[in-house]
Simulated scan of single mutants.
Amino acid sequence: MARILVLYYSSYGHTAVMADAIAEGVTGAGHECEIRYVAETAPPEVAKAAGFSQREDHSQIEGPDALEAYDGIIVGSPTRYGRMCSQMAAFWDTTGGLWMRGALNGKVAAVFTSTASQHGGQETTLFSLITNMLHMGCTIVGLDYGFQGQMGVDVVKGGAPYGATTLADSDGSRQPSEADLDGARYLGKRVAETAAKLAA
């Protein structure tokens, strides 16, 4: 049985909902999953004025060394100008000790994101996350086309071969669709299954 971490940051809840769906994919495949979020770095008055909210049923990650306990890590961040948010970047900036020890070498990793619009930088944000995971020595799993739900243009939908995605609209009113959530579940399952095979 593989042990998978879903690590995310979410200002308004969209990536948190995707994290839940990814965890469903992991546990539905018979593996263990924990969800953690990274610390808020925005000043409290800014976070309050902007209406940021944190899920009370999820816990903050204790620190970078916690990553060593998992066979796979799935990292999610909303897009900030086509790259990961500063909160997630700040967390990865603390992982130098893990990199020095090669502590994550060979672990399986995947990524996910949320943007306001269809062309809001989903793929560049996914790559900004993947870059960190590659530097850490991780084996990357994408949202392969075995998940056909990302295909077609009949409705607005997330999904890219580089990771699971969703769209929030500019006012945050759009919640992840069932297709977006199915992609997240598929990604969680693929990471868990891959991690289990590599550990065998």
Rank of each mutant, 00 (worst) to 15 (best):
S11E: 06
D154K: 12
Q175N: 12
G30Q: 06
A116E: 04
V191N: 00
G102L: 12
G172Y: 02
A196G: 03
E40G: 05
Y8E: 07
M84Y: 02
L104G: 01
E68Q: 15
T15G: 07
A47I: 08
T125F: 08
C33W: 01
A184R: 00
I35R: 01
S117M: 13
A192E: 02
C85G: 12
V6G: 02
E40V: 11
H31P: 05
F112I: 05
G102V: 14
A164E: 00
T113D: 04
E45R: 13
A50P: 10
A110N: 03
A2C: 12
R80H: 12
C85L: 02
R3A: 13
E45F: 15
G30M: 09
Q54W: 12
D93R: 11
A116S: 14
E178W: 09
T15E: 00
R36A: 12
R185Y: 11
F91N: 04
A23P: 01
D20F: 03
H31W: 03
R185F: 13
A195Y: 01
I61Q: 05
Q122M: 13
G25R: 01
A196K: 05
V6A: 04
I140V: 07
R3V: 14
T95L: 01
T124Q: 09
A39S: 15
F112C: 01
A2Q: 08
Q54T: 15
F127P: 00
S11P: 03
